[in-house]
Amino acid sequence: MENAPAGSWRKQDATYNMTGSKCEKCGTMYFPPRIICRNCGRDGKIKEHKFSGEGSVYSYTVIRVPPHDFRNVAPYTVAVIKTNEGPMVEGHIVDNGKKVEIGAKVRIVLRRMTVDGEEGLIHYHYKFELV
């Protein structure tokens, strides 16, 4: 599909900075951000919340048969990360030579994700590296 740029632009604060949200009433944190708390419903008090980007690998896999936009990137490792704050988040693990395993500590980095053709947008996104 050919995408207009608005779709990636409106997600930028989340995809660049890992900005999610937090319900100040019950303390639950969300990534990606939500405006309705899953616990408190309309009584929740949702505020923007920036995650530290630190956590550990909860599960992982290596994608060897990619979707169309990633055909030049595969194979790549993706993981479910348990953030130090509690919520889980999915993301790429960049290859820095360290071994990926459940429990391994990670931190956030900003990297190129996909490129829309030669003259199109370059999409940047948070990824994780092993520490």
Binding site: P67, V80, M113
Partner: peptide, 30 residues
């Protein structure tokens, strides 16, 4: 593969190249 990926979360899974087999692989590993 791309079409099936839409069964997961398009914005936060498929947009990061996480395929449908990838999602079940994450469950299998755990």
């Amino acid at each position: 593969t791309t079409a099936l990926g839409g069964a997961g979360d398009q914005e936060w899974e498929l947009a990061q190249g996480i395929t449908f087999p990838g999602l079940y692989a994450l469950m299998a590993r755990r």
